[in-house]
Design a protein around this nucleic acid. Structure first.
Length: 279
DNA sequence: CGCACATCCTGTGTGC
DNA sequence: TGCACACAGGATGTGC
């Protein structure tokens, strides 16, 4: 599930492939991917635009264009696939047997960028400007941006009564953290995920801030080695498990105190933690 | 405004 | 072995 580090790695690998390229046309194979926007409108508006860059805000991948921008969100399984040409796309994509499932493809003046998501949760949207993009407008500062300081985090924590885990998942407060790295950050900070956000002392907030930044940077290093290779449709991030200390380690000993990691439910989703040393 | 909860979708895992 | 079904996950919309 791409969170901030994964999307950052994708952005860095994608940038040299698309920067300065012109979109010849957009193929929408599965209209659900542009919902609630109309696929025809997206195709029409993106046609002929030049891609200025590839960038990221939270878990969103952005392709600023010379006219408007494209915004992508991978949700759980969304991924990018690179084809050398339109004929390779048509030969390999959406074929009955082991065809790569592509929802949206941007045919560029050199190469084709495919957005694939077999579960159809991921989205590709066109917006006339950054300011017109509703999901970005409600986004808090990026978790690894200089804007997200310890004081800033402490201030935001103080104004929320929600459990820490749910606070960290709220993209409007801080952007980029998902289910995996929220559990990891709380484990590293020795904080109980059920604790109310506004119960943290300044010292606690500093600990949490430090944990968030280090967890995300460590994960990014993992995601960059090896870097995403969009040419291989089977490619996906590997080796993250090595650095995970809580997530999906239910029943395994805590690496700090040896007690079993537990899986608890919060807001309808799983949280992994050591209730013995996370206070 | 803040928060709880249902919704979307499909491959995987579990239980019989 | 095969089948049925619950489940996971992030953002959004609705209702309190």
């Amino acid at each position: 599930m791409p969170e901030l580090p994964e999307v950052e790695a994708i952005t860095r690998s994608l940038r040299p492939l698309v920067r300065g390229r012109r979109i010849r046309c957009a193929h929408i194979f599965h209209p659900i991917a542009t919902k609630p926007q109309s696929p025809a409108q997206l195709a029409q508006l993106a046609r002929g635009c030049r891609i200025l860059d590839a960038s990221r805000r939270g878990k969103y991948l952005l392709l600023p264009l010379d006219r408007g921008l494209l915004e992508m969100h991978f949700r759980f399984d969304g991924q990018l696939i690179w084809f050398r040409s339109a004929s390779e796309l048509l030969r390999r994509a959406n074929q009955s047997l082991d065809g790569v499932h592509v929802d949206v493809a941007l045919e560029l003046d050199k190469g084709v960028l495919g957005f694939a998501d077999q579960r159809h949760f991921g989205r590709v949207h066109y917006w006339p400007s950054l300011a017109a993009c509703p999901s970005l407008r409600s986004l808090g500062p990026d978790a690894i941006s200089p804007q997200c300081t310890t004081s800033f985090l402490h201030e935001r924590l103080s104004s929320s009564r929600r459990p820490l885990k749910e606070f960290l998942l709220d993209q409007s407060r801080i952007a980029g953290i998902g289910n995996i790295y929220s559990a990891e950050a709380l484990w590293h900070a020795c904080l109980d995920p059920r604790r109310r956000a506004n119960s943290l002392s300044r010292k606690d907030s500093a600990k949490l801030h430090k944990a968030i930044v280090s967890v995300l940077h460590r994960a990014l290093e993992c995601c960059l080695h090896p870097a995403p290779d969009f040419r291989d449709p089977r490619w996906w991030f590997q080796g993250i498990e090595k650095v995970l200390r809580a997530y999906q380690r239910e029943g395994l000993p805590c690496r700090r105190c040896g007690h079993a990691i537990e899986r608890i439910e919060q807001g309808g989703r799983s949280t992994y933690c050591c209730l013995h040393c996370q206070k």
